[in-house]
Design a protein around this nucleic acid. Structure first.
Lengths: 66, 66
DNA sequence: CTTCTATGTAAAGTATGCTTTACATCGTCG
DNA sequence: CGACGATGTAAAGCATACTTTACATAGAAG
């Protein structure tokens, strides 16, 4: 699963810490998501979409196999 | 998180087993999702949306707190 | 050069998602 | 009645998501 979190965050000039605070997760979680270490839970994906004012499908892109 | 999986499945006259097969998960997983025991992973949520031809946001509804 | 902010990463622990095996109940159909 | 398909549930085990603590590196700014 790919995502454009880093790009969306950069547009807003938010640090990973700033975004983490807005989402109520740790900075390490944001870092892991941006670096593709794992996918967020569905509830967190909803929060991320809400923070950026986008649909989940506009932020996350499953690979071919998913 | 609420979802309308059961309703969508019923419309298509699919058993839990039939849907599980289409999604490559166990029947117990479908049952647990319909009964609200837990939320799917994000990759599974994408698959579910694809099977029903809907957006994730049309199937899953976060509670007020999420 | 030192300090500060931002980022990357690791290890250990807890919580959640999903599997397999197994068993119970219910309705339908022979 | 007996068999069968569909559904609900439980326990044990493995994989993934997320946390806290901690340390490293790089760039900007004093």
């Amino acid at each position: 699963m790919n995502n454009i979190i880093q790009e969306l965050r950069a547009k807003r000039n938010w640090s990973q810490m700033e975004l983490a605070n807005r989402l109520d997760v740790s900075r390490q979680t944001i870092n892991a998501l941006e670096r593709g270490r794992y996918d967020p839970s569905l509830p967190l994906a909803f929060k991320i979409a809400r923070v950026f004012g986008l649909a989940i499908e506009e932020i996350f892109v499953p690979d071919a196999t998913e």
